[in-house]
Design a binder for these strands. Structure first.
Lengths: 157, 157
DNA sequence: GTGAATGCAAAACCTTTGCAACTGG
DNA sequence: CCAGTTGCAAAGGTTTTGCATTCAC
């Protein structure tokens, strides 16, 4: 059971290759391996954890290549980033319940007064999970950037 | 207009003091000042931006103190962190639309199959904002941590 | 008076970059 | 062949830490 047959491997390679090629990128052993590591254990590993696991069977792989591979897989839609926002933590004086809107163009952050409440009938947790807080982050374009052709440059405002 | 009167200042100090003291912390000029900076311009500044603004009228304040003050204000409920999750970016092989659950106890991350969709009637954006994606992050305790007295230690799993 | 907080500098942590060597298509 | 990729080491940005001094209560 769950034995990875040669047939599976080939299918996967084809899928990988297709997706990467579509974005003008190459299928390398390292990228294949990183993808395999992510498929093997879906516990949302960090780049460092991926690196450690990848090294087990590919000792010469480097951290830079792991980042490169992860970026490649993300940018061609094969892998998803969780908890990406790598910029600095921001602080907010508004203690009312609210959500945050991030402008992907100029980086500005705006308060949005609506929230998804934990007792929203639509949000039912699997058994055993104790929900304490829901955070909603909205990505898109702010009024300034969606109206003007020339967005104010990528300043972090 | 919007002139901060002495009366306002005193009221604010009292509120600050009460909240800090309640958590066993002291009201220092630096903390007061950092709080003031956040009230003055609610544009979700980063710690570095707070530092720069605070320095304008308190040149000797240090970055470490800004972080300390922000932490103090956050931990007594006077300020909110946005985009906090300071750990490393995590990667996820599941490309189906889903949300993520973070266990605040052990740090594990789990997929939750529900999402808030952009066309959810409940989520209506203010005029001019172009919504492209909604990310939902749920915080709480995972089944293991909410059942056992002794949670598995704060390993980042 | 005393534990908490400050300021400084150094360290830690995660990620990106520059570059010469290598390689997949 | 040659643009894309690798691996290494060094740099970058953000946050934390250690410690002697100072301060709030």
């Amino acid at each position: 059971m769950a034995k990875t047959t040669k047939q599976n491997k080939t299918e996967n390679d084809e899928r990988l290759n297709e997706r990467l090629a579509h974005s003008g990128m190459r299928l390398t052993p390292q990228r294949r391996h990183v993808h395999e590591v992510l498929r093997e254990k879906m516990d949302h590993p960090t780049a460092d954890q991926v690196f450690l696991r990848a090294k087990e069977t590919m000792p010469e792989i480097s951290m830079a290549t792991v980042y490169n591979s992860l970026d490649a897989l993300v940018s061609c839609g094969l892998v998803r980033q969780v908890n990406a926002d790598r910029g600095a933590t921001r602080y907010c004086h508004n203690m009312q319940p609210h959500s945050h809107f991030y402008c992907d163009e100029c980086g500005s952050v705006h308060d949005i007064l609506q929230t998804v409440s934990p007792d929203d009938a639509n949000f039912r947790m699997p058994r055993g999970f104790r929900l304490e807080n829901i955070e909603t982050t909205i990505h898109g374009k702010c009024p300034e950037c969606s109206s003007s052709k020339k967005p104010r440059s990528n300043q972090i405002l």
